[in-house]
Design a binder for these strands. Structure first.
Length: 570
RNA sequence: GGGCCCGUAGCUCAACGGUCAGAGCAGACCGCUCAUAACGGUUUGGUUGCAGGUUCGAAUCCUGCCGGGCCUACCA
């Protein structure tokens, strides 16, 4: 038994996430956490909402609420959706928690003491009308290069030229439309990432088993142009962690907060403290401090590719630069993007399926299965309703659901609703055991390596093996000549249902629970020995025939949904 | 502009220097009738984007070209 710390990239607070966000971090992290728990390992799986930054303040303003109240509400909404998808976080925290405030300020003090923070005076656009400094993206104007009239302050979407907000002709605030923007002087703290470039490079070079996606992005940032740049870690905002050195004031930084990308990863750690505070655990440091028991912990992070620089560079600088024995990540699993029907998911245009809508139209396991079995591991992948319908109907309804249906119903009609007695294994059964043993080992290997699509394919193969067995054994034919042998075949088939429920639980937790309940299984332990696992339900054991496990998606539904989610959400 | 990734059967993907390039879906045929008209078997289908090169041997390594995607540091 090993100890596994797992974190999923923390979702931003300003709205409901779409399926692309879900499959990029939280869902695979949950798959891995459930699998490891199933194997009997000790797991701490943490996630939280990322609540600071300009977008949160603006979203709150639009909702007509104080930002703290808005965040609390949205945290509740996201927590409920996470629950709906069966995301089994040990704790779902908040980056705005007091624990994170304290820890973020603590790290800042340590980094400052280590000489890794410097002050920089710079000029930024300020909007008196909005009463705030505006990030480059919140300023629009006419592109000096091509004349496009909606160029953003960081880049022109029309000619792709990179811009500085001061380059724009007739700049205006995208929040209020105000044009009375002025350049103001302001002072910020920068994290001297450049000072740790060599340490980071050496650390990345040692990670030979990480996904190419992860290491290539990290190396790009390390070596691009003049190398790793220092990064501003403070902002002129009201909502956030106040800039302090530990619990001491930071002269010159009054009224400023830490940049959300500085405090967000620290929340991974603070979330452990929240977990204890919530009464769910009693010692978070044994997961996070290598001097307090975290030496034997394996720490795995999950994220979309856009998050990789912060997890391979900025956050490790925070950890290493502190000079304290915090647990550093051991493995980073990153994902590409899931596109929607020929384009990108778009939150602003309501294009694609969002978590709340997904749960309205179908059970969570449909989404979990499809998203995970087609996860964008090696390249971007695409959601289409045709593929979704076809794959889900085939894999879940026809292969798994129908297997459960045919064996339970056959037993009920010939032997009643209890596991039949009699008969003994022959060559066919021994071959099945050998086949399953091999397939389960392959499944475990893929899950251990977090090769999600491969694991799904192997699980499906295990389901298919059940149908192959029934076809070959043909208990409906055997029953006429040799009821004892038919009883043995049916008993084996019913035990396969229990085995499938156990093996499928990481992918299909809700369906797995339904199956175990229907079949009346008391033991849902991972099968260490297949032969033994297939004797778990003894002769005479009562069961019930479950309702249709997976109703098929009809053509009319598919067509209606395709239209409904094509764009423009309320 | 720079960098990275990808281009393999109609579709989604696997093989990452070595037996006839594999699997699922879709298609065709056969079988079964327990089952959600479900299941099983057989089978059609590929000069592995193009052109060169290295090698006894290349989908795999190198060069160039064509096509697609992503990233490029003040959104998070």
């Amino acid at each position: 038994m090993a100890r596994h710390l797992i974190t999923s990239a923390i979702p931003y607070i300003n709205g409901i996430k779409h399926l692309g966000n879900l499959v990029g971090s939280q869902l695979p992290a949950d798959l891995y956490a459930r699998y490891l728990r199933g194997r009997g390992h000790e797991v701490l799986f943490l996630c939280a909402t990322d609540e600071h930054g300009t977008p949160a303040e603006i979203a709150a303003q639009k909702a007509g609420k104080p930002v703290a109240e808005y965040c609390e509400e949205m945290h509740g909404v996201q927590a409920a959706l996470a629950d709906g998808f069966g995301l089994s976080f040990d704790h779902f925290g908040r980056s705005s928690s007091p624990q994170n405030h304290r820890l973020t300020q603590h790290f800042a003090a340590r980094l400052d003491a280590a000489g890794l923070i410097r002050e920089v005076t710079e000029h930024q656009m300020y909007s008196p009308t909005d009463g705030r400094f505006l990030p480059d993206r919140y300023i629009e104007g006419t592109c000096p290069n091509c004349g496009f009239d909606s160029a953003r302050g960081d880049q022109c979407d029309n000619c792709t030229k990179q811009l500085d907000p001061t380059d724009l002709i007739n700049p205006r605030s995208t929040i209020s439309g105000a044009t009375d923007l002025e350049l103001r002087e302001t002072k910020h703290l920068y994290l001297r990432q450049s000072a740790m470039k060599d340490d980071l490079a050496a650390w990345i070079d040692r990670q030979t088993d990480w996904p190419v996606l992860t290491t290539s992005i990290a190396k790009k940032w390390l070596n691009d142009g003049d190398g790793l740049q220092d990064r501003g870690i403070t902002r002129d905002l009201d909502w956030g962690v106040p800039v302090q050195r530990g619990d001491q004031p930071w002269p010159g930084m009054e009224g400023k907060v830490f940049y959300v990308w500085f405090d967000a990863p620290i929340e991974y750690i603070a979330c452990g403290a929240e977990w204890v505070e919530a009464g769910k655990g009693d010692d978070w440091e044994r997961w996070w401090r290598t001097d307090k028991g975290a030496d034997d912990v394996r720490y795995t992070q999950f994220m979309g590719k856009d998050n990789v620089p912060f997890h391979t560079l900025s956050f490790p600088v925070t950890i290493l630069g502190s000079g304290e024995p915090w647990k550093l990540v051991d493995y980073i699993k990153s994902f590409n993007y899931l596109n929607y029907d020929g384009g990108q998911f778009s939150t602003s245009r309501g294009r694609g399926v969002f978590m709340d809508q997904a749960l309205e139209i179908l059970p969570a396991d449909y989404w979990r299965w499809w998203l995970l079995s087609r996860a964008p591991e090696t390249s971007d992948s695409e959601f289409t309703w045709e593929a979704f319908q076809q794959d889900v109907n085939k894999d879940l309804a026809d292969v798994l659901g129908n297997f459960v249906s045919r064996i339970t119903k056959f037993c009920r009609s010939k032997f009643g609703e209890a596991v039949p007695e009699g008969g003994a294994y022959g060559a066919r059964e021994e071959a099945l055991l050998a086949d399953l043993t091999r397939r389960i080992a392959a499944y475990e290997k893929s899950m251990d390596a977090i090769e999600v699509r491969k694991a799904a394919a192997e699980l499906r193969g295990i389901w298919v093996a059940g149908n192959e067995y029934l076809q070959a054994a043909a208990p409906w034919a055997t029953f006429k000549e040799d009821p004892q042998t038919a009883a043995m075949q049916v008993r084996l088939g019913l035990n396969l249902v229990r085995l499938y429920a156990v093996l499928s639980a990481p992918f299909l937790p809700f369906s797995s629970a339904r199956l175990l309940e229907a079949i009346g299984a008391e033991d849902a332990g991972w099968p260490n020995d297949v032969g033994e696992a297939l004797r778990a339900l003894p002769a005479g054991h009562a069961f019930t025939v479950p309702e249709v496990m997976f109703a098929k998606i009809a053509d009319e539904d598919r067509a209606a949904w395709a239209e409904r989610f094509a764009g423009v959400r309320g």
